[in-house]
Amino acid sequence: MAKKRKRSSDATAPAAVPKPDDSAPERPERTLFGFKDDSAAEPASKDGGPVGPFFRNKEKVLITCSRRIVYRYRHLMQNMVSLLPHAKKDSKVEAKQSKGSALNELVELRSCSSCLFFECRKSKDLYLWMVKSPAGPSVKFLVNAVHTMEELKLTGNHLKGSRPLLTFSSNFDQQPHWKLLKEMITQIFATPKDHRKAKPFHDHVFVFSIVDDHIWFRNYQISVPHNEIDKVDKGGLDKMTLVEVGPRFCLNPIKIFGGSFGGPVLYENPFYVSPNQIRALEKRKKAGKYATKVKAKVRRKMHEMENTLEPDEFADLWKGED
């Protein structure tokens, strides 16, 4: 990790925010220290006053993973790091009982305001923690259908650090938990304006779409004919094409917690079945197959023994003729 310039506001902000030890509904101090430095902006926004010039997005995302992560998922994590110029990478974290507190500390130490934690279990299943720090909320996802950027089928390419456009499907606005997720995703995945590592052009677009209660992620490169840099050619918008860059994944929300890396459960996915369970079910099915076979065999035998065939009286009628 390169050394970061310390901004005085960054250094003081986390210290100023109290640790979220409770989830009391009344919270006088808003815990979004990303734009906390000018506290005047916050109440003004509540009243609907102009905040535009004061608002500054200082989001920083810590990206780490658990130990013993599989290479495929590690590549996915690295893809995310390359996609988010405002991300900081950290070394792997041991997935222990106390990893929540350790991660909280780490996030605070790196002065980040949110965290993406890739947790790999049984070197099969990938869980993704999406956390707003320090006051929460945090979401735990199961990650499915992972395709990394390295795959040769995904032919697009775009500038590293250009700010993505975020598109959401409209069903994000239908239910409260989706609304919350949308806000979190926006804050984590949108590159802050005028970030020092961000490039000034827009040449890729993120897709977040809810299909079948899963959030599907896609990343496309935008190729549009243009000669000037502030205007698309006439009719260029119709000629615009997108090329997929990757990565691809599908997030299945499991739980939403009130705090960061823990806290009271606010939402639980009623349809969620853990991969462990699915595997167990499959195994049991397989085991059942053999058991039924054996049972059927035994039953048949018993049946045959009970109903023995009577000896046929005409059985040796033609015996003497040979």
Binding site: T31, E42, F55, K132, A135, G136, E183
Partner: peptide, 11 residues
């Protein structure tokens, strides 16, 4: 929670 973390509305 959403209100807590949300950016100002007229951002």
């Amino acid at each position: 929670k959403l209100e807590d973390i949300a950016w100002p509305e007229n951002v």
